[in-house]
Design a protein around this nucleic acid. Structure first.
Length: 527
RNA sequence: GUCCCCGUGGCACAACUGGAUAGCGCGGCUCCCUCCUAAGGAGCAGGUUAGAGGUUCGAACCCUCUCGGGGACGCCA
């Protein structure tokens, strides 16, 4: 049936609603609904009544979601690369909560594994240096200033307790790069450290480094208005035997085979490109094995749905994790993995050079101090997360209309100013007796229409996991408001008109604030 | 080499997932403060949605190919 005919049919069979003025068919078959005059004005009363609840919904009621994001290795402070995932995750959590989901935010702490051993050894070597030993620092060790800080703490509080003769430390160690193998070099040093210090002392250094850095990360995130409910320890997973259990279960189901001394999970049977090692020939379980155990554990804790926010470079891991869950009869479809692309920093039109190799990542803290929390949070989620973005530092820093954050915040501040003016001029606003019919010019209609669609935008933003929808919404709302503000005075002689306009302005302010709050951005009363 | 993502005015991005005349911001050019914050507003110029086919009432969006950019392909974490 041609669209226009179908539209006609719909129209003929439609019930009349009191909010409906008329219905028309247009273009190739669109059905246009015309609202009764005055209908959309009622949104003002609705907003002023619901306040911070306006925009919230219950579409996610009953769904328990575990949202895991950032989960960077605690081997150093967070850098700007982590910032996007942090901002995106925190914002998504806000959106999901606003739409009625039961959300738990979790940070997976990779506190086990070789990287952490390298970290502990790095700290210990710096400590030995401070204690007076002559140390040739390994090329593959962590070199940041924070390593010195931790070492200094160890030295200050425990003096010579952890001192060992450098000759012993470097005994029977493979040569370092460039002539030797830097990986073997550091691994040998780790072995020596464990042996010379003994497990108890080694663990102490290890935990000191770990706890210090987790604390640094926690504070970094907290200052960025990113809060977690649970910090989940990978080591705990191993120590509770869950990793072993996971491998055993795979074995019992016949999904594991041995080859070249290692244990392999036959992930190809579940759509992966190649099989994956879960236990190395030296007996150590792999990171992947921990991941399997971790995801089983998430489901075992009773969550209906899991969301992981990963860097786009982890794309290849999706198939294998889902394969493992499928093999173990877990609902792999309920594991949703959102990939976040990297953000390139630009300064005055030039890309800020960054590389993992040289460790020249700009710390997240530096960015925060530079452009401020609001701009950083806003900019990070301004673009779709799954696409590359250019982060313009100069623009984010700019305290001008060019800066979209200020543009939106300014609208909020302006309305606060209007309210102050009312108080100053002893004009009382009667929110119960608003003559909404007064709001009839095109600017006011535009604002009203925009206010009305906020709840549906919040829902869409949450369902599609796309916070930028709200960012765009706020920019549009601010735009309509500024335009209106410039065209008409709110505080006018006609009391009914004045009352209606200020009420609309206050409703606008409420929605701006609700939206900004969802984005983790402040809504200033003065600028 | 295999696989994944992307390509929209000079720049950076939207487009309610297949709908009406493809929008917004920067940048460029004009204008607007005896007036509630000019951190604002009004307007002009700028597009064959990388290119070529196809699917249908209709395509930036779906399919195929070409070109161009990015990423992933370890007994690393």
């Amino acid at each position: 049936m041609p669209p226009r005919e179908l539209a006609q049919l719909l129209l003929e069979n439609m019930e009349k609603a009191d909010w409906l003025e008329r219905v028309e068919i247009a273009g190739p078959g669109f059905v246009n609904f015309f609202l009764r005059a005055g209908y959309n004005q009622s949104v003002v009363e609705q907003i002023l009544q619901l306040q911070e609840q306006y925009g919230c919904s219950e579409i996610g009621r009953g769904q328990k979601i575990l949202l895991e994001f950032v989960s960077a290795n605690p081997t150093g402070p967070l850098h700007v690369g982590h910032g996007r995932g942090a901002a995106y995750g925190a914002t998504l959590a806000n959106l999901l909560k606003a739409t009625g989901h039961d959300v738990q935010c979790e940070y997976y702490v990779n506190d086990a594994g070789r990287q952490m051993d390298i970290l502990a050894t790095s700290v210990w070597l710096r400590y030995l240096d401070l204690a007076g030993e002559k140390i040739q620092f390994p090329s593959n060790a962590y070199k940041g200033d924070y390593i010195w800080d931790i070492a200094a703490t160890l030295h200050r509080e425990h003096g010579e307790d952890y001192r060992i003769d450098a000759a012993q430390v470097f005994a029977n160690v493979h040569a370092d790069a460039p002539n030797g193998d830097k990986e073997k070099h550091i691994d040998d040093l780790i072995d020596n450290a464990k042996q010379l210090l003994g497990s108890e002392k080694y663990r102490f250094v290890f935990d000191l480094a770990l706890n210090t850095l987790v604390d640094v990360i926690r504070k970094d995130l907290s200052a960025f208005v990113v809060e977690y409910d649970v910090w989940f320890s990978e080591r705990q997973l191993t120590e509770q035997g869950l990793v072993e259990q996971a491998i055993e279960r795979l074995q019992q189901n016949g999904h594991v085979y041995e080859q070249d001394g290692a244990l392999w999970f036959r992930s190809t049977a579940f759509g992966d490109e190649k099989d994956r090692v879960v236990q190395r020939d030296n007996g150590q379980t792999t990171y992947f094995a921990s991941d399997i155990a971790y995801h089983m554990n998430k489901f075992d804790r009773g969550f209906d749905h899991l969301i992981n926010i990963w860097g786009a470079d982890h794309h290849g891991y999706i198939a294998r994790v889902k394969a493992a869950l499928t093999a173990l009869k877990y609902p792999a479809d309920e594991l949703e993995i959102l990939l976040v692309q990297f953000a390139n920093l630009y300064e005055n039109g030039e890309q800020v050079a960054m590389s993992t190799r040289s460790g020249e990542f700009v710390p997240l803290r530096t960015l925060r101090e530079d452009v401020g929390n609001d701009a950083a949070r806003f900019f990070y989620v301004m673009r779709r997360a799954d696409q590359h973005m250019d982060f313009d530092l100069s623009l984010a820093r700019a305290q001008s209309s060019d800066n979209p954050v200020y543009y939106v915040q300014y609208a909020h501040a302006r309305i606060c100013s209007v309210e102050r003016q009312c108080v100053e001029q002893s004009i009382s606003i009667d929110l119960d007796g608003i003559d909404l019919q007064k709001l009839d010019n095109k600017h006011e209609q535009a604002v009203l229409k925009q206010l009305m669609v906020f709840p549906e935008r919040v829902n869409r933003s949450a369902q599609r996991r796309e916070p930028h929808i709200i960012i765009n919404y706020l920019r549009e709302l601010a735009q309509h408001f500024h335009s209106w503000y410039n065209a008409h005075k709110f505080i006018v002689d006609d009391p009914a008109l004045c009352n209606a306009r200020v009420a609309l302005a206050l409703a606008t302010r409420q929605v701006l604030k609700n939206g900004l709050t969802l984005m983790g951005v402040s809504a200033p009363e003065k600028m």
